[in-house]
């Protein structure tokens, strides 16, 4: 038992950077292909991060180092808890801790770019946080438990019972992966009106930490996605693969929207879809 727990902890800690980095590399190649380019090598994200670790340590405010570390810690714990099949709400709350610390770190710089980025990130959190909780509630209404364990005990894929909540999750995914039209606070692409938004004043090794933490988060949200098809590993992989492909496609075909649109559309659509699905589960 203890051995299993330890193994899962290690698996979670390792899977985050490894899978997350590979996914990021894959993402960049695919995006390049969408734009009829060749794109970087698959391992490019790892090169970037290793290079960043080798750069000179330079900070705007020492609390940036604190916040980046706290972000990484929270993100990795939330993934480990996911691997341990723990409580969904608990995972969400811990993941939110990381997101908040990243924002506070950006706030600690007086640069208007960081500040504006930080606010936009807060608005993004505001937009997706309730939607994630609805998904957890949907899972609770169906399985009778908030524990991920209960999802794996299901005989039928969750997708069939929570189709609308899956759409809501895709919505959250777009925000969380920093894809257009919701790459408001920062993104991997040239982003000139905001420089690099939230990440503007993070640099060198500290930037590398936030990058790794982002990988952990990516794996976590894709993990949530995989919960919708737990009966068959192949099904889960296929579901996550298709979802991610669609995400990149959306990223490439849409322009960036403003936060009013995000919040209005996100809440209106997200809450309606969730409500429909929840009421359906509730009544049944």
């Amino acid at each position: 038992m203890t051995g299993h727990v330890l193994m899962m902890i290690v698996a979670g800690l390792v899977a985050g950077p490894l899978l997350g980095g590979l996914i990021a590399g894959f993402d960049r190649i695919l995006t390049a292909r969408f734009q009829s380019r060749i794109g970087p090598p698959l391992l490019q994200p790892f090169y970037d991060v290793i290079k960043l670790f080798g750069k000179e340590k330079q900070v705007v405010n020492v609390w940036q180092a604190f916040c980046a570390n706290a972000y990484l810690t929270a993100a990795s714990i939330s993934l480990v808890l996911f691997f341990l099949r723990s409580d969904l709400l608990l995972i969400l709350f811990i993941q939110a801790v990381g997101a908040v610390f990243l924002v506070v770190g950006a706030f600690s710089s007086t640069s208007p770019y960081s500040q504006a980025g930080a606010h936009r990130e807060l608005l993004q959190i505001l937009c997706y946080e309730p939607l994630l909780i609805f998904i957890a509630v949907g899972i609770y209404l169906h399985t009778g438990s908030f524990k991920i364990e209960a999802v794996y005990a299901l005989k039928q894929p969750l997708l069939l019972k929570l189709p609308f909540l899956f759409l809501v999750l895709n919505f959250v995914l777009t925000i969380k992966l920093r894809k257009s039209p919701f790459d408001l606070s920062t993104s991997h692409h040239a982003h000139q009106e905001l420089v690099k938004g939230l990440l503007t004043d993070y640099s060198g090794p500290i930037l590398a930490l936030t990058e790794i933490a982002h990988w952990y988060e990516t794996v976590l949200v894709l993990g949530f996605c995989s919960l919708f098809w737990t009966t068959n590993p192949l099904g889960a992989i296929l579901l996550v693969g298709i979802t991610y492909f669609v995400e990149i496609w959306i990223d490439n075909v849409s322009a960036r929207m403003n936060w009013r649109w995000m919040l209005g559309y996100g809440w209106a659509m997200g809450i309606t879809l969730s409500l429909v699905n929840l009421v359906w589960l509730y009544v049944r």
Binding site: Q58, V59, V60, S203
Partner: peptide, 11 residues
């Protein structure tokens, strides 16, 4: 560790 780092003005 960061207190030994180079303090740089915000962008």
């Amino acid at each position: 560790g960061a207190t030994q780092a180079r303090i740089c003005p915000p962008y």
